[in-house]
């Protein structure tokens, strides 16, 4: 008889949380918050500063790699590879040919990061 009482108590205990769970509003947990454009920009700037030939003081989003930052074609490739490594992505040759300014590179990276 005592065992029976315990069993019925257990059943009740097991049921209670199920009912509570249905009432509770669903909560979504995100592993990583989506990346912001500011974050992409600041990380891109940090990565670009590792390129020796680049003039840090002139580093802005509007800056053209070759005209404003004093880079030649080799340095530009180097800058793009530094960005690729920082964001762990690959910029296809077709697109990297068209990237002329820091802002264009940041835009492309931001779009790619959002796809993840």
């Amino acid at each position: 008889m005592f065992r029976l009482a315990v069993r019925s108590a257990r059943v009740q205990m097991a049921r209670a949380p199920v009912a509570a769970a249905i009432v509770r509003a669903p909560v979504r947990f995100y592993a990583v918050a989506p990346i912001t454009k500011e974050e992409v920009t600041s990380r891109a700037f940090e990565a670009l500063k590792t390129v020796a030939a680049l003039q840090e003081s002139k580093l802005t989003l509007e800056a053209n790699f070759q005209k404003d930052l004093g880079l030649d074609s080799l340095d530009t490739v180097e800058a793009l590879v530094a960005l690729e490594e920082e964001f762990d992505l690959e910029i296809p040759d077709k697109i990297s040919d068209e990237i002329k300014t820091v802002g264009e590179a940041v835009d492309y990276i931001y779009e790619e990061e959002r796809k993840l």
Partner: peptide
């Protein structure tokens, strides 16, 4: 061509990383 040279430069750097 210069394009090929730049592409080689890029591939080498990516490997080096």
């Amino acid at each position: 061509t210069s394009r090929q040279v730049l592409s080689l430069y890029k591939q080498l750097l990516e490997k080096a990383y």
